[in-house]
Design a protein around this nucleic acid. Structure first.
Lengths: 216, 216
DNA sequence: CAAATAGTTTCAGCCAATGAAATAATGATG
DNA sequence: CATCATTATTTCATTGGCTGAAACTATTTG
């Protein structure tokens, strides 16, 4: 049942048989489940009989995004992400841990013609990635300058990541990740980017610690 | 099971007993379900034992938001929402239907000090609301000027809504909704707002029909 | 410290979910 | 147009897993 939800959500648009196969269920069972999920609004079925996520699902997700535990995080981080874009001209993301993966949950996009986009909602392994190193970092005492992790081509060739952890209550809560083309993120620019990422990660951490005015 | 998911997602943060009560389940059953959902990453349990939505959920939601059936809609509508804010100085929303409710799935915020915010992810009844009238409107032929529906105080006192349907493939797919304080949305301003909403709803409909350049 | 409240474990009983198979609808192919 | 292949849907006898009362533990409160 949840497998089916997963399948549909991650595939985007699936037929009954495809979904059943992926979820490893007989079609009759899959059909029943898909129907149930559709009735509840979690999924929708278009005129061709293909399933995709429905309004109830999107709604819950959006609501939780504004209220749930990540709300404080995203609110605290968003201005930082935008500053980071201003400072580096590359795209900035906020990532959290999900089991053995890191998931990007919000972004501010670079305004350059060539830029990194569309990774919000995407997960990448912690293993072998800069964001993984940052999220698994030992939490530094609040207020100290965070370590910055860099990596090129771990997920996609020619993409360089510059990442630093955000800490709160003695835990690494999230990571600020700057992503851009490898040829733009090298030498002096890379060095500046690393500085900026560290600055912002620290700032966001402090922001989380003391719920001051800032935000909207 | 899905009831529990709903409960947690809509409440934001709940204890076992509270969730069990809301979902009308014995605590033992609720516990089992909550654990399962937690293991799957749909929910998380904080140190105080309270449940809230988890990273997997947020992730799926965000991903579907970028890929699923609403992606075209939100992409097509976003520039329109922003134009609407420029033209009217009020907050603009995009809403879709979910059973007997309308759900706001994206927004562009007014830049005035007093403004309507935070309804993304929120559902309101179709019954008795302007957005409801718009979503239940008979679909007009593509290209014709959409009817505009207005209402004050249906959900919250002193909030005026100005809404027009977005049509595609002979169906009302969504609605463009402008929300602001009643005292600012009256007389001449209201009239202008209605014009602007109609313009934009039409533009978005045309946009959906012909996947032209525009968007990012 | 007692008493109430919240969370967790256990387990026998039973019912609701299961999936094989048959049927209908759809759509490819010669 | 007939035939075959694929996909969707319905049916129903069977049983495994889910259920929830009860007992127990942990935590909070007065």
């Amino acid at each position: 049942m949840l497998n089916l939800l997963d399948t549909v959500a991650s595939t985007g648009t699936v037929s009954l048989t495809a979904a059943a196969e992926q979820a490893d269920l007989p079609t009759s069972t899959a059909l029943r489940h898909l129907r149930l999920l559709t009735n509840r609004g979690y999924l929708t079925k278009d005129e061709q009989g293909l399933y995709s996520v429905g309004p109830a699902f999107v709604r819950m997700a959006l609501a939780s995004y504004q209220r749930g535990p990540y709300a404080r995080l995203t609110n605290a981080a968003q201005p930082g992400l935008e500053q980071l874009v201003d400072a580096t001209e590359e795209s900035a993301y906020l990532a959290v841990r999900d089991g053995a993966e890191a998931v990007y949950i919000s972004t501010a996009e670079s305004r350059r013609a060539i830029r990194h986009v569309g990774w919000v909602g995407r997960g990448v392994p912690l293993e072998g990635t800069a964001v993984g190193l940052a999220l698994l970092d030992d939490p530094q005492p609040l207020g100290s300058r965070p370590r910055v992790h860099c990596n090129t081509g771990a997920i996609e060739p020619d993409v360089t990541a510059v990442v630093a952890p955000v800490v709160a209550t003695e835990q690494v809560m999230a990571a600020i990740s700057l992503l851009g083309p490898a040829n733009r993120l090298s030498g002096k620019r890379l060095h500046n980017a690393a500085e900026a990422v560290a600055d912002i990660a620290l700032e966001v951490s402090l922001n989380l610690a003391s719920p001051d005015q800032s935000s909207r």
